[in-house]
Design a protein around this nucleic acid. Structure first.
Lengths: 147, 147
DNA sequence: TTGATTTCCATGATTTCCCATGATATAACT
DNA sequence: AGTTATATCATGGGAAATCATGGAAATCAA
C-alpha cells in the first residue's frame, strides 16, 4: 500500500473547511474498500493523543489494520485498554466533499489550536494535521534530539 | 540490484519538467515492484532540510527497505514516530511521464535553488539532483578536503 | 429566527495530459 | 564501410483536467 508522504499547508476557513492534499486523497481512495471512481473517500480522524498537539488521519484500510492489531493484544492489558480507548472513543469518520475538502469540527480545531491554517504531514500509514507554528516547533525538537 | 552511476545535466523548463537520465530510468523500472513494460516507473524524492543543497531520488524498492525497518518498531512508540516523521514528511512520490521526465514542484526547486538546469549525480543506491553551479562548488570542496 | 451546518456553484491558478519535433542512437541491409 | 531504416531521447507548446479557495442558497436545530 502507498504511504502518506510530504508536507503541505492549507487555509482553514471560518466554517472549518480544509482541502486535503491531493496526493493524500489518492491514498485515501485506494484505502477505502467502499470507494470507487466518482465517489468521495472516507477517512478516520483520531484526536485524543495526549502530549500531541495534532490530529491524525487514517485511511479506512489502515485504521482497520491498527484495530485488528489492538484486538490481538492480551485482553485487559494496560496497553490494549489505552489504545482501545483512544482508537474507539477519540476518533470519528469523515467523508471528503466534492472538492476534496473535509470539515474539521470546531471541537477538534480547538483541541489542537487550529484557526486559519493547517499543515498536513505524511507519516507513512497515517498523516498528522497541525497548527503550522506548533508543527515547526515540534520539528525543531525532533531534529535536535535525533542523531 | 543495479546502482546509479554517472553525471548528466538537463534543462528544467518553466513548468518544472526535467528528463531523468535514460540510464537511471532503467534502474527505477527494475526497482519499482508495480512496474512492467509499457508503464512509467515511480520513485521517491527526499528533500530533507539538513544542510544539503540537493534533492535525492530513490527507487521504490530501496525506499521500502528503509520503510520496513521502521515498520517493525512498536507502533506509537516515540522512536518510531520520530523516524516516521523524518522519513516521510520530507519526501514525495513522483511518477515519470511518457517521455521519461518528472515534474519538480516549485517548492522543491526553490529549496535547492534549481531554475533552468539540473545535474543528476549517481550515488549507488540513490541519486542526487543539484543546481549545476552548486554541484561544482560542492565537488571542489570535497576534493580539497579528502585524501 | 438566528446561528450553525450543509449543499451547490464559481473561479483563478496550477498541474496534467497529449501531441510534435529535431537530435542521437541502434540496428539492418546492401 | 556507407547508406538507410527504426527506435529512443531531450525538449517544447497548447488544451484539458484538477486543485485550492471563496461565497450564496438551502437545510437544520434550539
Amino acid at each position: 500500500m502507498r504511504r502518506f508522504r510530504g508536507e503541505a499547508e492549507y487555509k482553514v476557513d471560518t466554517k472549518g473547511r480544509v482541502s486535503i492534499p491531493a496526493a493524500f486523497r489518492r491514498i485515501l481512495e485506494e484505502g477505502d474498500p467502499d470507494w470507487s471512481s466518482g465517489l468521495n473517500p472516507n477517512l478516520v480522524i483520531v484526536y485524543g493523543r495526549r502530549n500531541r498537539k495534532c490530529l491524525e488521519g487514517y485511511s479506512i484500510g489502515s485504521i482497520e489494520i491498527v484495530d485488528n492489531l489492538v484486538s490481538n493484544l492480551p485482553r485487559y492489558s494496560k496497553e490494549r485498554e489505552i489504545l482501545e480507548r483512544l482508537l474507539n472513543s477519540q476518533s470519528l469518520y469523515i467523508q471528503l466533499d466534492e472538492n476534496g475538502r473535509i470539515i474539521l469540527p470546531s471541537k477538534l480545531r480547538k483541541l489542537v489550536d487550529i484557526q486559519t491554517k493547517a499543515i498536513f504531514v505524511g507519516m507513512g500509514e497515517k498523516f498528522q494535521i497541525w497548527n503550522p507554528d506548533n508543527y515547526i516547533s515540534d520539528m525543531n525538537l525532533i531534529e535536535k534530539k535525533s542523531f
